Simulated scan of single mutants.
Amino acid sequence: MTSDLDPKYDRSGVYRIYPTVGRGFNVYCDMTTDGGRWTVSDGLAHHNNNKFTTPNQDNDNHMSIHCATSGKRLGAGWWFNSFDSACFTLSYANNKEGLTAESLIQWEVWGGSRFPLKYAAMMIRRV
């Protein structure tokens, strides 16, 4: 895990992490920004160049479904393509409300939509 690395000794670069039981996978770890220990695993590439879609403005690329309001979604705005591979504006319900998959805050490349995230942060800075 990225938290096992020490910014004092470990440099930014590609490391193999094991967030769940299995073979693990390679991710880029930023060890300098704001104290380091950032996992950087670009799951937003699918959303590049898409307009922001809201419940009242359908800008996604899906022909028959309005992605911000489909299923049990609670009206999430996002940069949907024809579906989402990551969406941070959905609910964290820990499945207590019977919500699953596409209705929960998710990051597909991290663990699939069946493992909801408790929170997510998007950071931006000038490069």
Rank of each mutant, 00 (worst) to 15 (best):
G43M: 01
A68S: 14
L104Q: 06
T53S: 07
Y119V: 14
G35S: 06
D60N: 02
T39F: 02
H46V: 09
L5V: 07
S91H: 09
N26C: 10
L99R: 15
H62E: 03
D42H: 13
G75R: 02
A76V: 00
G13Q: 00
V27Q: 02
H46K: 10
K8C: 02
S113D: 10
N48K: 07
F88N: 09
T69P: 01
N50C: 03
Y9S: 15
S12E: 00
S3H: 10
L44I: 12
H66Q: 15
M31H: 08
K8D: 06
T54S: 08
T69W: 04
A101Q: 08
C29P: 11
W79A: 02
M63I: 11
G71V: 07
Y15F: 11
F80V: 00
P55T: 13
P7I: 04
L44T: 15
I124M: 12
C87I: 00
S82E: 05
R125N: 14
I65T: 10
M123G: 14
P55E: 05
V40E: 05
V21A: 05
A93I: 03
M63H: 10
N95F: 07
N59E: 00
K51L: 03
P116E: 05
K72I: 06
L74Q: 01
G77N: 14
G111P: 15
A121G: 13
W110N: 07
M122I: 15
D60L: 00
L5N: 11
A121L: 07
N50V: 04
D10E: 00
K96E: 12
A120T: 14
M123R: 12
D4T: 15
C87K: 00
F83Y: 01
R23I: 15
R114G: 10
P55N: 05
